[in-house]
Amino acid sequence: MFKRTFALLLTACATLPATAQQPADDSAAIRQVVDTYLQPLLTSHQAAGAIVGVSLRGKRYYYAYGTANDDGSPFTADTIVEIGSCTKVFTTTLFALAAARHQIEPDAPMQRYMPDGVTLQPAAQNVTPLQLADFSSGMPDNPPDAPRDLRYRGIDHYTSADFFRWVSSWSPDGPLPRPYEYSNAGIGVLGAMLANATGRAWNEQLSADILQPLGMTSSFVGPVDVPGRTAEGHLRNGQRALQWPLYAWYAAGAMRSTAADMLRFGEANLGHSEIDGHPVSAELIAAMRDAQKPRYTLPNGVAQQGMAWVTNNGNGSPGLHPEIWKNGGTAGFSSVIVVNPFKDAAIFIAVNQNDTPPAPVAVAIGRHLR
């Protein structure tokens, strides 16, 4: 059992050293906003700890809470965390890049990009890559035949062949496009389709087209253990969680990253043409905007679904501006990335405990930044 004390949790919030931080007075004001909205979440869930990164008008701040590991080591801007489904917006950005390069047609039948030997059911053959990207394909969240036990769910046990055997048996349950249905499996299929369409493996595209250009040198695919830098995840009961496996549908949730790297990604999604002195191509910025673009209104009647990204349009409240966000969760982590274009702000939060939702907190922080 992970042993926590509220004193440790509530007094460990500290601004971390970083070359891109704002002057101390600005940092203190932002810390007060972060404290106001994050500490109640951590207290109510008795969470082990968290790291918060805030980029405001191109300047960065980092705030650490609690502990990253059971040995009491703190979070830093460079602590490696599981970002879970935040991986999806990297995949949809790659999809937008491939579409802009005329390597894949968003509205083409998905059968065209299937791996060799995979023949879809007639009703599934006309599902499109775009419908997979914006959750209107009708594909379920996860393959129903995948093992429930996390220890046996990784790609070594439930292989890519197993995954595509299920994909070849699946059919949407009505006319396309289907109503919104969140799907890890759908983004996993999209990642494989990108590999076939471009001739490059998904992880190679990720590295060459996003991570390297943005200087995201501490972002990884699959389980990783960098001594002194890798945070430990926890279940809601405080016990250590297993590391998130590499699934056969890895393009939906395989990444690990840091607050520093995720702010780089957030700034690029805000349209910054330069990150840490390195230029960001107009092609990449355009692809990010295409991935963010709302495609339809979600069942709540307010938020809009993009390609994995969700846009909140202020819920009709005066003075509020759109926030664009994606959250993620694994067995041991909860995370979110939010970009607020009106304020030129990006917020990343990772909590090293599952089912501890930071998305409403990140949205609130963004709305209260000055």
Rank of each mutant, 00 (worst) to 15 (best):
Q305R: 01
M255D: 00
R295G: 03
G228A: 10
P318R: 04
V224Y: 04
T258L: 03
G222Q: 02
A287Q: 01
P341Y: 03
M307G: 02
V280I: 05
R289K: 15
L246H: 07
E232Y: 09
F220Y: 12
H234L: 10
F265K: 03
N313M: 12
F265Y: 13
Q243W: 08
P245H: 02
G332F: 05
I324E: 07
A268R: 00
A303N: 15
L320P: 10
V221R: 06
S273V: 14
W325Q: 02
A286H: 05
G253F: 02
F342M: 12
Q353P: 12
A350I: 06
P223T: 08
R240K: 15
A308S: 15
V226K: 11
P299V: 09
L320Q: 14
S273H: 15
N269G: 10
V338W: 02
E274P: 08
P318C: 04
T230R: 03
P223A: 09
F342C: 13
G314E: 06
H234G: 07
A286S: 08
G319A: 15
A359N: 10
H278C: 08
T297V: 11
A248L: 06
T356P: 05
G253A: 06
W249A: 13
D344I: 07
S317F: 09
S257F: 02
N354S: 15
Q305C: 11
V338A: 00
R264N: 11
N340M: 11
H234W: 06
P279D: 05
N327K: 13
F265H: 05
G314S: 05
A362F: 02
Y247G: 05
A231W: 01
K293L: 15
R264K: 15
N269V: 11
A350F: 05
P294H: 09
R236G: 10
A259R: 00
G328Q: 03
A331D: 14
N352A: 13
E274L: 08
G301E: 07
E323D: 11
L235E: 07
I337D: 09
G328N: 01
T311R: 11
V339I: 12
M262T: 03
Y250T: 15
P245V: 06
N313S: 12
A303H: 10
G233D: 10
G271S: 14
S257G: 07
M262D: 03
G328R: 01
T258P: 01
A282F: 04
H272L: 12
N315D: 08
R240I: 15
A268D: 04
Q292R: 09
P227H: 08
Q353V: 14
T258R: 01
A331Y: 14
N269Q: 11
Y296M: 14
A331H: 09
S335W: 03
L298S: 10
I324G: 05
Q239G: 07
P223W: 01
E267I: 00
P358C: 12
E232W: 06
K326F: 02
R295C: 06
F220N: 00
L284W: 00
R229H: 14
L263G: 00
G271M: 12
I275A: 05
G329P: 02
P322M: 10
Q304F: 13
G314M: 07
K343G: 10
S281Q: 09
E232F: 06
M288C: 04
W325K: 01
Q239P: 12
P322D: 12
